[in-house]
Design a protein around this nucleic acid. Sequence first.
RNA 1: GUCCCCGUAGUUCAACGGAUAGAACGAGAGCCUUCUAAGCUUUAGAUGGGGGUUCGAUUCCCUCCGGGGGCACCA
Length: 620
Amino acid sequence: MNQIRIKIEKLLENQLGIKDIKLEIPPESDWGDFSLPCFQFSKELKLSPNKIAEKFKEIIKDNLISKTEIKGPYLNIYLNKKEVMKDIFSPKKAKKKSKKKEKVLIEYLSANPNKPLHLGQARNICIGDSLVKISKYLGYETHAGTYGDDSGVNVGYNLVGHLYYNYPLKTDKKFDHYSGEIYMSMKKREEEGGENFKKQISSIISHIEKNDNLKISKLHEEYTRRCAIAQFESCWKINSFFDFVTWETDILKLGFFKETIEKLKSMGFVKFADKGEAKGCWILDLSDEEEFKNTRNPYQILIRSDGTITYPAKDIVYAIWKLGFLDRDFFYKKLVQQSNKDWIFTTSSEKKESEKKDFGNYDRAIAVVDNRQTYAQNVVKTALKMLGYLKGDKKYHHLAYGVVYLTPQTLIDFEFNLTEKEKKQDRLPFSSRKGWFVTIDGLFDMLIEKIKNGSKNKEIPFKKIAMGVIRFDFIKTDIQQDIVFDLNKAIDLKGDTGMYVLYTFARISSIFEKAGSNIAINKIDNNSINNLKENLEWEIIKEISKKEEIIEEAFESLRPNILAQYLINISRLFNSYYEKHSIIKSEESIKTARLFLLGKIRETMREIMRLIGMEELDKI
RNA sequence: GUCCCCGUAGUUCAACGGAUAGAACGAGAGCCUUCUAAGCUUUAGAUGGGGGUUCGAUUCCCUCCGGGGGCACCA
């Protein structure tokens, strides 16, 4: 449709002798297919917009246009459906995607490896993985990466639990859930006080970061990797996969940070603060940057006065690696084979058994990180800019998505105790500190239960449905908007949900099954297409022909949510069509044409569903 | 103090500066002896207040009111 629009725009520019014509789509479909608002020409031509529309109407003529109509200041254009359909359905349109040269990294999830994944992270996963799939569809060489923060206090709790408080490594439970239990119990112990516990924690953290105790380093690696793998299993359930995981401890062990910071010092970007609040620290001076001028502290501390490294510093170094400006690379080895048979690789600090991989040196690095971290991400971006790394074709994007909150009722449904005050809130944030583990696994199981109970057919693949419903639910809302998760709404499978889309698809498949397989719907001549005379059919054709431009826009504007909306639109159009017009029972030539159209709808829906991580089903 | 985001039907969400502000849930009224009723059709119902820019503002600017988040020698 976009090509048609551009064609018509060019045509009008020639015929009317005006530059940069932008056509719009009328709000009502019976007002035409395109519309030219004439206000903009009023000043130049010294005529009222209505008069201009009349004048233009006389001039415009083409075989792609069947008629033009004036509606006030708008000149509405009706396309010649036959010609346009020929164009849209011509076989040469189905050309293969050309490979693009840019190399893209999408970093998402980036969870602490010490507890199960919660629903807030589900949104991150759904957005991140959808972008990966879209990027690959568009022909980019694409890697999905995740950052494992395995050096901080979080993991420390769990190791202390294991070493000093009788939590064995062996367990029948899913390891991330087991970790969550240990984490909670250690948190409790900390709150109860005790100098001994504090000492144990800080000693463990120190050993992890310095890598100076073989026993602890080994335990740490086993623990975090096992937990991460359990988390990845949750991702696979919802059709999300990774290429590699970067461990923070590897950045430290390989000395990337030290080298980078020395380089930055010598370049003069990193300075030693000899006075003020940050006295004794090494800082990145941001005071010349417009964005930070009015902030309280126009600098970022990279090295604390005790010589330890801050999180933003690690983030900056990692970002430099992403864009290929770090002179060195990690070592890599296989971590685990995913349910789709592809392996996740893990960074490693040891050369032996390292495999050669082409991770790193990306042209476009997209970080899917929630909007609370916009400031921190701006620091990273500014640092890259100051260093001159964002010149040329290198791009660093922060996809700032809105945070997921919970309704109090949802927490009650998951059997957590709330205070009276908490019960009265509109929404509550996820809090692992309070032990509110509303997990992806938990939601997944509840959904399956719900679908089983609501289904007449007991043979359908419940897991795929649950997967599709979750994927759709977490991506349908505008990306930057915060969302409030309510369990009852999420498992209520009516209306604008993934279920609606899955159901619609199955409905179409069912028609094909009833129609029999002897109809050659892929081969259709122009005469048959001309049997598609209904308005709704024309609406559908226009809608499905927007596919490519919508996918492109979803990626460029980092808004995969528009694909979910698009699926709803197509589904709604089809369902209306289905009610109004019978397909199988129509006359033979019309039936052929309609089945052809249905095939196109099904193909379009399948492609879009796959891009947002849903899997289509022929039966529900 | 300062920076950012958000205020649209009862609720959850839409709307490149364009025509009559769209959906879904919930509420009301219909539609299955005919291709899957997890569906379709239909009724009622909304832009926080005030300025400005514009032929035209939910959208851009200012201001007020209300809600949230950030600005750590936390990660």
